[in-house]
Design a protein around this nucleic acid. Structure first.
Length: 213
DNA sequence: ATCCGGACTG
DNA sequence: CAGTCCGGAT
């Protein structure tokens, strides 16, 4: 059933080609900036950084906190996000030199995940997003949307992150492309249809959903 | 005036 | 589990 929903979403929305970024580090920055924030505003912040050619680990570490806050302001939560950006960036630089080198690391995914989770400001969703979209490791990303959609459909009855992650990983092919697309498709569907206040009348899944009005 | 985003910390 | 972080949308 889990895999069937993937095929239905893919057939309906088409490939999303996530994550939109020009470098692995840009994905990391995007992951932090998009916490509790719509992507539209994150794009403005990324654009600011790119305009000053600052989308680089060393440069982010070297600019002042105030300058960083100013640049990422459009993404909101700039006080905490500026700190989190410095945190994850210095973790990467101190342990791997760069995001590209971290990607090349031979460490098992589980080890990489534990290390990411130990960085202040990186929770499960951010860790998995970095693993999947920045480091090309097959770690399924679970978010509020995933929980909402599948609990509404009646396929899941849980809010437990690790449990849901496991269910997905056990029921879809261990294929990077599938992992990346599936999460992206869930986001697309939930942001347009299966919203907090759902638009069930416009939902192409209403016939198989237990939540339909 | 309140809600809500591609959540995290204690 | 609640408290917290910002700005735009409702």
């Amino acid at each position: 059933m889990i895999y069937k929903i993937y095929k239905l979403l893919l057939n309906h929305y088409g490939y999303q080609n996530w994550w939109p970024a020009e470098s692995r580090y840009e994905v990391v920055v995007g992951v932090i900036l998009t916490q509790n924030t719509s992507w539209k505003n994150v794009e403005k912040a990324i654009k600011n950084l790119k305009a000053k050619n600052l989308l680089d680990e060393e440069k982010i570490l070297n600019i002042s906190m105030n300058e960083l806050k100013e640049l990422i302001k459009p993404a909101g939560f700039y006080n905490i996000k500026s700190e989190r950006l410095k945190e994850i960036t210095s973790f990467i630089v101190n342990n791997y030199g760069s995001t590209e080198n971290m990607y090349l690391s031979k460490e098992p995914m589980k080890v990489l995940r534990e290390k990411l989770l130990n960085v202040k400001g990186i929770g499960k969703e951010s860790a998995d997003s970095i693993l999947l979209y920045a480091l090309d490791r097959p770690s399924f990303v679970v978010d509020t949307y995933t929980k909402r959609l599948f609990n509404r459909l009646g396929i899941l009855n849980s809010e437990d992150y690790e449990y849901i992650k496991r269910i997905f990983e056990e029921n879809i092919p261990k294929d990077l492309k599938v992992y990346k697309e599936y999460h992206a498709l869930i986001v697309e569907h939930c942001k347009t249809v299966c919203k907090k206040k759902p638009k069930c009348n416009k939902c192409f899944l209403k016939d198989i959903c237990l939540f339909r009005f």
